[in-house]
Amino acid sequence: MNEKLYTLIEDYNLGRLAPAQLEAFEAAMKTDAALAAAVQVHRVEWEAQEMLAENVLRAQIRQTFVEHPPQTQHWLLKNWQWTALTLLFLGIAGVLFFQKTPTEALPQNAAPANLPTDTVPTRDTLVPTPNVPKAQPPQPLDTRKYAMAAYRVPDDLITTTRGEESEDTLSLVNKAFTEQNYRRVIQLLTTLPKDERQEALAIRAHAQFGAGLYADAARDFAELGKGGIYRREAQWFGVLAQMAAKGSDKKLWMKELDKIRQEEGHPYQKEADALWRGLEVRGERVRE
């Protein structure tokens, strides 16, 4: 059998003939018994060779399985040594990070746990006991504790009108603040949005206070206190931030505090007065 006829038979058996060729070929088979027999033999030959090809391929697959065992495990499990090493490294990095982060918690509805029980101020009265042992030398007053005890997050700071699914910056900020993720808030508000700038500035200031960055918080409250609807609120919180910040000017914030407590109708007059009296009782050193 010549190669051309063999190819034609192969194309017929594999269904590769064009319709016109197919019609002609089938007509030829009806009249040519030898051709019809050759087609049948080719079919069997092809099937046998396919089986041999299958055997070769099967052997190759099995050989590959032996030489390179298939990865049916997840790569994390397969490379468990690297996974464990990475987790260990992340753990150490996490511990180091948190060790360097200020750990002072922001009191919201309760006084700090480390505040002596006899000096815990309440919302209405900040009257620490004057019963200080005389034998001991006078301790410098920790004004930060007073500031933190007097601090409350304003109820209307976080707007609730935004949809929870909203993805704009202030929505993300509100969400992070609600979760007390103050560093995230600060990160999100590194640049203040042009719209709702005052709201954003107020939230950032409170986040800084919450994160223990009191000097930064004082700066933001001072900025906020220059004008606008947050002005008087910013005065009060600015005083608290300055009280908590290291190295702040005591005379300055005392003067501010005094001003707030004497201003009739100031929304934080009552709180300022309570704080003032509490400091006055304890704090000659404050008044230096």
């Binding site: 046998a48 060779q49 396919e50 041999l52 090809a53 055997n55 070769v56 391929l57």
Partner: peptide, 10 residues
């Protein structure tokens, strides 16, 4: 021949 024809078929 089995191996040869298998490779040829592939």
């Amino acid at each position: 021949c089995q191996k040869l024809l298998g490779l040829f078929q592939l």
